[in-house]
Amino acid sequence: MTCWVGVASRDHVKAAIEGGFAQAGHGKMAPVKRLKRGDDILYYSQREG
């Protein structure tokens, strides 16, 4: 199992939570393909910008 940290705007994180999906990679597939079933993803976003 691998733990990943994503950095995203608060709006993007909220949309992902509400939609039941994760966003990552800015359209680049190579990093996303490294994700495996069972990996954890933690998102960080600033409270205030």
Results as ranks from 00 to 15, higher is better:
residue 20 G to F: 07
residue 13 V to L: 14
residue 21 F to K: 14
residue 26 H to E: 04
residue 30 A to G: 12
residue 18 E to P: 02
residue 26 H to C: 06
residue 13 V to Q: 15
residue 31 P to I: 09
residue 9 S to R: 10
residue 7 V to E: 12
residue 13 V to F: 10
residue 32 V to K: 06
residue 23 Q to Y: 14
residue 14 K to L: 15
residue 23 Q to L: 15
residue 36 K to D: 06
residue 6 G to V: 13
residue 35 L to H: 00
residue 12 H to T: 11
residue 34 R to P: 06
residue 19 G to A: 10
residue 6 G to D: 06
residue 24 A to I: 14
residue 6 G to C: 11
residue 12 H to K: 08
residue 10 R to G: 00
residue 34 R to Y: 11
residue 13 V to M: 12
residue 23 Q to D: 14
residue 9 S to E: 01
residue 27 G to N: 12
residue 15 A to I: 07
residue 19 G to T: 04
residue 5 V to E: 01
residue 8 A to C: 04
residue 4 W to P: 00
residue 15 A to N: 12
residue 6 G to Y: 00
residue 34 R to C: 11
residue 26 H to D: 06
residue 30 A to M: 10
residue 27 G to W: 10
residue 17 I to A: 00
residue 19 G to D: 08
residue 36 K to H: 10
residue 10 R to Y: 00
residue 9 S to Y: 05
residue 9 S to Q: 04
residue 26 H to V: 01
residue 16 A to Q: 10
residue 19 G to W: 05
residue 29 M to P: 14
residue 35 L to M: 00
residue 6 G to A: 13
residue 33 K to T: 09
residue 9 S to H: 05
residue 30 A to Q: 15
residue 6 G to P: 00
residue 21 F to D: 13
residue 20 G to C: 02
residue 16 A to Y: 00
residue 20 G to P: 05
residue 12 H to I: 08
residue 33 K to M: 14
residue 6 G to M: 06
residue 36 K to R: 15
residue 12 H to W: 13
residue 23 Q to C: 15
residue 14 K to G: 06
residue 22 A to G: 14
residue 37 R to C: 02
residue 36 K to T: 06
residue 5 V to C: 01
residue 8 A to M: 08
residue 35 L to R: 02
residue 13 V to G: 10
residue 22 A to D: 08
residue 27 G to E: 09
residue 33 K to Y: 06
residue 20 G to T: 04
residue 8 A to D: 08
residue 18 E to V: 07
residue 21 F to C: 12
residue 31 P to K: 13
residue 18 E to H: 01
residue 17 I to S: 01
residue 36 K to S: 11
residue 4 W to V: 01
residue 33 K to Q: 11
residue 10 R to S: 01
residue 12 H to D: 12
residue 10 R to A: 01
residue 10 R to K: 02
residue 11 D to I: 04
residue 19 G to F: 07
residue 35 L to A: 03
residue 20 G to N: 04
residue 22 A to W: 07
residue 5 V to F: 02
residue 7 V to N: 09
residue 23 Q to S: 15
residue 37 R to I: 02
residue 16 A to W: 04
residue 27 G to S: 07
residue 18 E to Y: 04
residue 21 F to A: 09
residue 9 S to F: 06
residue 15 A to L: 07
residue 32 V to N: 09
residue 23 Q to V: 15
residue 18 E to N: 09
